[in-house]
Simulated scan of single mutants.
Amino acid sequence: MRRLASVDTAPVPRREPSPEERGEAPGARLWHITLSVAGAEAPLAEVRRGLQQLAHDHPFLLTSRYATDHAEIRYWEEARDLHDAAAVALRLWGEHRASAQLPPWEIVGLEVIDRETYHQRVAEGYGPPPATPVGVHPF
């Protein structure tokens, strides 16, 4: 009787696709951005409308949460490194304040993490959950 070689049935670790395989520009990486802004109270309807306009103008925005005196915007940014991703994120609110009629709030927080760190945090249960539902929502 012929013996068959044993087959290792351990799961093969899943490899993250390279930036090129994900259709990203060479040398660029994806960064998860959380931008927090705050300031004087503004009418809730105006805050919502401004964030919806910002999301319409820039469909890369995943989700926004808002109240009368603060908001949080989460999205993915494609950039060469953390410095470039943070620089773009820090300009977002000010550059679109007039066009989206956003409140004159200031940036009070910024978190920039790479794709691998984001997924690791979510898998371990202590990071921000995936942005569902996507869109603009009250806190």
Rank of each mutant, 00 (worst) to 15 (best):
3 R>V: 13
3 R>Q: 08
5 A>W: 09
6 S>P: 13
6 S>V: 14
7 V>Y: 08
9 T>Y: 15
9 T>G: 13
9 T>E: 15
10 A>S: 15
11 P>C: 06
12 V>S: 09
13 P>S: 15
13 P>W: 15
14 R>F: 13
15 R>G: 04
15 R>C: 13
16 E>F: 08
16 E>W: 05
18 S>T: 14
19 P>A: 15
19 P>F: 14
19 P>S: 14
21 E>S: 12
22 R>D: 02
24 E>V: 05
24 E>K: 07
25 A>V: 14
25 A>Q: 15
29 R>F: 10
30 L>I: 05
32 H>M: 01
34 T>S: 11
36 S>L: 10
40 A>Q: 13
41 E>W: 11
42 A>I: 03
44 L>H: 10
45 A>S: 12
46 E>W: 10
47 V>G: 02
47 V>A: 00
48 R>H: 08
53 Q>E: 15
53 Q>C: 06
53 Q>M: 09
54 L>V: 10
55 A>G: 03
57 D>S: 12
60 F>Q: 08
62 L>Y: 12
62 L>M: 08
62 L>F: 07
63 T>Y: 01
65 R>Q: 07
69 D>G: 04
70 H>N: 11
70 H>L: 12
71 A>R: 04
71 A>K: 07
72 E>R: 11
74 R>E: 03
74 R>M: 07
74 R>F: 03
76 W>P: 02
77 E>N: 06
78 E>Y: 02
80 R>V: 07
80 R>H: 04
82 L>M: 05
83 H>V: 04
83 H>G: 06
86 A>K: 07
86 A>L: 00
90 L>R: 08
90 L>N: 03
91 R>A: 10
91 R>Y: 03
93 W>E: 00
95 E>C: 02
95 E>W: 10
97 R>D: 01
97 R>K: 13
101 Q>F: 12
101 Q>M: 07
102 L>Q: 00
105 W>K: 06
107 I>E: 08
107 I>C: 13
107 I>T: 14
108 V>R: 15
109 G>N: 05
109 G>C: 01
109 G>H: 11
111 E>G: 07
111 E>D: 14
112 V>Q: 02
113 I>K: 05
114 D>K: 10
114 D>V: 11
115 R>C: 06
116 E>Q: 08
117 T>V: 03
123 A>R: 15
126 Y>Q: 09
126 Y>H: 13
128 P>S: 06
130 P>T: 04
130 P>E: 11
130 P>Y: 08
131 A>F: 00
131 A>T: 06
135 G>Q: 02
138 P>H: 06
139 F>N: 02
